[in-house]
C-alpha cells in the first residue's frame, strides 16, 4: 500500500497530522521526503509546517533506520546504572555511533528517554523487544544473536 492510500483512514484534519506521521513511520520505518510531501498534500498544509512537526518530536526519524533498531534507554535509572558504558560497548561492537546506521543497513543505534522499565535498569530494546539487567557480557550476546539472525535471513 502506498502512503496516500493508508493516510485515508484519518480524517484530513490538522489534528490528525501526528497520527498520520506515526502511521507512516510505523509502516515505512522513517519519514521520507516523498512521504512528507504526500502528508502535506493530504492534510492540506505546507510541507514546511509538516517538517516543523516532524523535527519537533523525537519519535520521528528522517533517516532510514537499520533492520534492527537498537534503542538504548537513557532514562535516569538506566543512566546511573551504566547507559554511557553500554552505549560505548555497542558502538565499538557495531562500529556505529549514537544516531547512526551501519553500511549494511542491519543495525541502527539510538538512545531513548525512558522505556518505563526502570526496575530492570539498564535496559535496551531491539525493534520493540526489551532486554533488561544488562552487563557487558549480556549486551554483546544479544547483539550477536541479532547479527546471526540478520546474516542468515539475508537474501
Amino acid at each position: 500500500m502506498n502512503t496516500s492510500s493508508y493516510l485515508k483512514q484519518f480524517a484530513p484534519e490538522k489534528g490528525n497530522i501526528i497520527k498520520g506521521l506515526q502511521e507512516i513511520q510505523q509502516r515505512e520505518g522513517y519519514i521520507s521526503r516523498e512521504a512528507l510531501d504526500k502528508c502535506a498534500d493530504y492534510f492540506q498544509i505546507a510541507p514546511a509546517e509538516v517538517e516543523g512537526v516532524v523535527t519537533f518530536y523525537s519519535q520521528f526519524k528522517r533517516v532510514k533506520p537499520g533492520k534492527y533498531r537498537v534503542s538504548v534507554c537513557d532514562g535516569t535509572a538506566c543512566h546511573i546504572k551504566g547507559t554511557p558504558l553500554i552505549l560505548d560497548w555497542i558502538s565499538t561492537e557495531l562500529g556505529i555511533g549514537n544516531g547512526e546506521t551501519d553500511d549494511a543497513g542491519l543495525f541502527s543505534l539510538e538512545t531513548v528517554a525512558c522505556l518505563g522499565c526502570c526496575s530492570l535498569a539498564p535496559v535496551l530494546s531491539i525493534n520493540g523487544e526489551i532486554f533488561g539487567n544488562l552487563n557487558r557480557k549480556s549486551t554483546l550476546r544479544i547483539l550477536k544473536r541479532f547479527k546471526k539472525a540478520g546474516v542468515s535471513n539475508a537474501d
Binding site: 490538522k14 501526528i18 497520527k19 506521521l21 512537526v53 518530536y57 523525537s58 520521528f60 531513548v112 528517554a113
Partner: peptide, 23 residues
C-alpha cells in the same frame, strides 16, 4: 492520542497544541 516523544508536552498548553497537531 499518542504523543511523539517530547517532554515539554507534559505541560498543559504544550499538550493542547500537540493534540491540535502542532509543534
Amino acid at each position: 492520542k499518542e504523543g511523539a516523544g517530547a517532554f515539554v508536552c507534559g505541560e498543559e498548553t504544550a499538550l493542547i497544541h500537540s493534540l491540535e497537531g502542532k509543534r
